[in-house]
Simulated assay, not measured.
Amino acid sequence: MMLSALTIAASVALSSPATAPGAVYGLKPFAGQVVACTTDGLEVLTRDGQPVRVLGSEEGLPGTSCLALEVAGDLLFAATDAGIVSMDSAFHLEPVLDVSWQALPPAEEASSAEYVERLDLLARVLPADATYTVLTSRFAGTADGRVLELGTERAWSVAGPVVRIDEERQGVQVVAGDGAFFIDPKGRMASR
């Protein structure tokens, strides 16, 4: 069985010198390379997994850790512990938002400009006093165990940080640090 280049890149990223002290939070193919989101910044790898360079605070990455990646149009977006940046195909970083998000919403085939507009809108409607760990098209989860329905006043508290939100036809499945929960269409929450 042959391993894909992304699998090889993931293996190398997990063992490369730039990421050895910390964790890898995500990998995305971008601009003919693979970009790893790590506790040390953004690591650029060749498609076959060879380290090329690490982008950190000296290159304009806010904070010390990259926590999430999303490609929209011709830009790669990275959420860090101190803000969101975009990266072009020449691997130049530009600040996008000064927020504390540990997640990015899915691009859903949006252009780069549309994605920036979506991020700006989210930043305006989300309470600024939270660290967001999950963002979907309709819900946000926080590090302090809150689930917010976007565009409404509905919110629920769960045990532990929210790590996953899955929207289903029958309701919303929420996985938190201390358990799983289900929110039905009427807003009733039950433990799973």
Rank of each mutant, 00 (worst) to 15 (best):
A82T: 02
M2T: 01
P21N: 09
V174R: 01
L42E: 06
A140L: 11
L93Q: 11
V71H: 04
D120C: 10
L55A: 02
A180M: 12
E117W: 01
E109P: 01
T46H: 02
W101I: 13
A18H: 06
L93C: 10
E149T: 04
G26F: 02
R154T: 05
G60H: 11
S57D: 13
F77N: 06
L122R: 04
A78I: 07
S15V: 04
P95M: 00
V52D: 12
A176T: 05
F91Y: 13
L97H: 11
D98T: 13
A103F: 03
L42W: 07
D74C: 05
D40P: 00
V162L: 10
S11P: 00
V162T: 10
A68W: 02
L150I: 10
L76C: 13
P29M: 06
S4E: 09
D81W: 11
E117G: 01
V24W: 12
D98I: 01
S111C: 05
R188M: 05
G56R: 14
S89N: 11
S15E: 11
L6Y: 01
A82N: 09
A72K: 05
S157G: 11
R138S: 15
L121G: 10
P17H: 07
G179M: 09
T152P: 05
L3G: 03
D48R: 14
L135S: 03
D81N: 15
E109W: 05
T39N: 12
R53K: 15
A10F: 00
R169K: 12
L27K: 07
A123D: 12
Y132E: 14
A155D: 00
D166F: 01
V158G: 01
S4V: 00
P95Y: 02
A180L: 10
S191N: 01
I8D: 03
A31M: 07
A9M: 08
I8R: 14
G83Y: 13
A113D: 15
M2L: 09
T39V: 02
P106T: 05
A20W: 07
F181R: 03
E149R: 15
V12A: 14
P185D: 14
A123H: 11
P95L: 04
E108R: 15
F30K: 04
Y132S: 08
F181K: 03
V162R: 11
A20N: 03
A23R: 14
A123I: 01
H92T: 10
G145C: 09
F182V: 08
A23W: 13
R53V: 11
G32M: 06
A90R: 08
L6I: 12
D178M: 09
P51L: 09
G22P: 00
P127T: 07
P62E: 10
V44W: 03
E153M: 09
V175Y: 03
A36V: 09
Q173C: 01
E43C: 10
A110R: 15
L3D: 09
T142F: 00
S86F: 04
R138H: 14
E43Q: 15
E167D: 13
I8N: 03
L75D: 02
E59M: 08
S111F: 07
T142Q: 00
W101F: 12
G145Q: 08
S112C: 02
A113G: 06
S137Y: 01
Y25R: 09
A79E: 10
V96C: 08
L67D: 14
A9E: 10
G179V: 07
V34P: 08
V35M: 07
Q102W: 04
L42A: 05
G63I: 02
L61P: 05
T80I: 12
F182N: 09
L122P: 02
